[in-house]
Design a protein around this nucleic acid. Sequence first.
DNA 1: CAATCATATATCCATATTGATATGTTTTGA
DNA 2: TCAAAACATATCAATATGGATATATGATTG
Lengths: 111, 111
Amino acid sequence: MARAATTEDAFNAVAEPRRREILDALAAGERTVGELVDRLDLAQPHVSRHLRVLREVGAVHVRDEGRQRIYSLNAEALKPIYAWVAGYEHLWAERFDLLEDVLDEMKQQDS
Amino acid sequence: MARAATTEDAFNAVAEPRRREILDALAAGERTVGELVDRLDLAQPHVSRHLRVLREVGAVHVRDEGRQRIYSLNAEALKPIYAWVAGYEHLWAERFDLLEDVLDEMKQQDS
DNA sequence: CAATCATATATCCATATTGATATGTTTTGA
DNA sequence: TCAAAACATATCAATATGGATATATGATTG
């Protein structure tokens, strides 16, 4: 079996840096494909392809306006990523919770 | 150019579901390769390979103990993912901040 | 020292990819 | 109506993949 398709889920779609750049750009507001091409310094077909991947995982929406297509962010598609990684956050975050510190000290005294 | 290597960064490493499973298992405590094989129902060479990818992006550490290798989680390697996706969290989260609601209302009255 | 256990590595296969380039397709404007 | 603008799609090349399988490595045991 080969690697999972980038359209498999948000995790795979977002593994590509250019696609994260696109999402970052859209976080500031809707953009036209041409605007994204300018901003990313990437050929238009590549931008269109990345947008397609993002569309397939539901991370962006499109709206037709004349001969332009206006892309907008759908951040909810990133929820599963946040949900997963947030479960790890407490493992590196500094603890400001005093109770937790006290409990740690008690454990040390026990051992 | 082909797709980026899974060892390129944490984003790529974590795109693979089995590797997330491994990290999830390690979040509960150190595990031996054999324990991970049992837990994941995956052939040992595959587990070893996934562990290697996770090692190369710094998401796990290894410790030798006789003929076993004990893997442990290094959650800090996931920080960049958290940092990136957390920037989107406010876009879908319900707002409980009263001030923000008031400001939104004022904006609406202006327009 | 030989045999075994616990892992790691090597090779093969099928596949999905990214960038480059060429070519549609639809809308707009003269 | 014809040409240009704005996108989308198709194809090609090079490559990295993940699973399967076989094999190598290193530690332990008898």
